[in-house]
Design a protein around this nucleic acid. Structure first.
Lengths: 206, 206
DNA sequence: TCGATCATACAAAGTTGCTTCAAATGTATG
DNA sequence: CATACATTTGAAGCAACTTTGTATGATCGA
């Protein structure tokens, strides 16, 4: 990574936005490799092939870089989740598989895992709150090509409520696997049995 | 607490079991007052009015005292929860109110709160695992005088599954209140809407 | 006498409160 | 981009203190 000595020194190739994106990508790579605690701004700058000052140009503080990493990670995850869920045709299956997908995928993404375990006051919690997670979940569900109306999910509140319950279950399984090894099928049975009935027939007031 | 200089020194009043119970009670009081980190075996002994050696007589290690505290606390909590739930007559309401009761009650019990936040490898986690919590929940539900059969909950698996979902939701609300202040009614609506339908009519395979 | 406790002592392990040194953050200037 | 620098943070080492866990003999009541 010894670029910079004979290359361009003025305006970089690509837009400002591009440089910003490259820094976030570099930070993500560093965190994935060395962990959050062992990642310094110098490491990120080196990985991105820029100097520390350039990083400060786009992010006033180190925590802003990390917030951007968290948000970018969540967005990327949302995209993959949506893509994955598009393969299912019933509302119940989409609900079931969203939990399974989350439980199996998130632990492989170090910065997302950190995000979920973050405690009160943690800057990571400020970056993406659980409320934002629920909103993200609702957005994902809404975009999945399924006949939600016939499943009784129509209003924004319906999506928000369903997303919140599913997200809470999936967060819970990350922290309390319950058995040393929970199989995908055990997860499916649980969600299908206890959330599924709500997705058949109108939900209405209860 | 300067007893011991002029009191009895031989066999104590009450049975062996009584002394053990008194130590657990004293430890609970200490933890409630000073917190887990600031509670030492000496404190517990002094609070119980015995010497450290007597504590060691009943509990080989300090962690055994704390395990006993955790288990006793969970049992006591289960008793109060069962009593509370006896006031409700429908299966759905029992499910709903069990979550509300848990969310509102547990934070007031320092040693239970610690238990729920305990991480992997924490001795508190060894004391009462999440699997034990789910089992406790199932036991509670089973004992509440409600016509579970007509709600579709009959087998041990039904109780275990329902208890697991409810416990997970309640644990989740402890850690992610979602909004700064979640009202009891918001909690009720969520659970009633997404778990309730499963408790009307037979559950069966899905 | 027996069984449980008290009293005291003590080694090993863990905590706390520093001091010191290196690394990282944030800012300035050319 | 490159270099320089004040301030903050983190890690490493170390001494004083606390706590754990164990041992041993004396005391008291049944």
């Amino acid at each position: 990574m010894h670029m910079g000595h004979h290359g361009w020194q003025g305006n970089p190739p690509g837009t400002e936005h591009e440089a910003r994106r490259r820094i976030v990508k570099a930070a993500t790579a560093c965190i994935d490799r060395a962990g959050l605690a062992k990642t310094s701004l110098s490491d990120v700058a080196q990985e991105a092939g820029v100097t520390r000052q350039t990083v400060y140009r786009y992010f006033p503080r180190l925590t802003d870089v990390l917030s951007a990493v968290a948000i970018a990670g969540a967005e990327e995850f949302a995209g993959r989740m949506e893509q994955h869920l598009a393969a299912f045709t019933s509302a119940t299956e989409v609900a079931v598989e969203s939990v399974v997908f989350g439980v199996r995928t998130v632990p492989r993404e170090p910065y997302l895992g950190l995000l979920l375990q973050a405690g009160e006051g943690d800057f990571f919690t400020d970056a993406v709150t659980s409320a934002q997670w629920f909103a993200l979940g609702a957005r994902i569900l809404r975009n999945v090509p399924v006949d939600w109306a016939s499943a009784g999910v129509t209003t924004d509140d319906d999506f928000a409520g369903l997303a919140e319950v599913l997200m809470r279950l999936f967060l819970s399984f990350l922290q309390h696997p319950s058995a040393p090894t929970v199989t995908d099928d055990q997860l499916r049975t649980l969600v299908r049995r206890w959330i599924g009935p709500a997705l058949r027939g109108p939900i209405g007031r209860v």
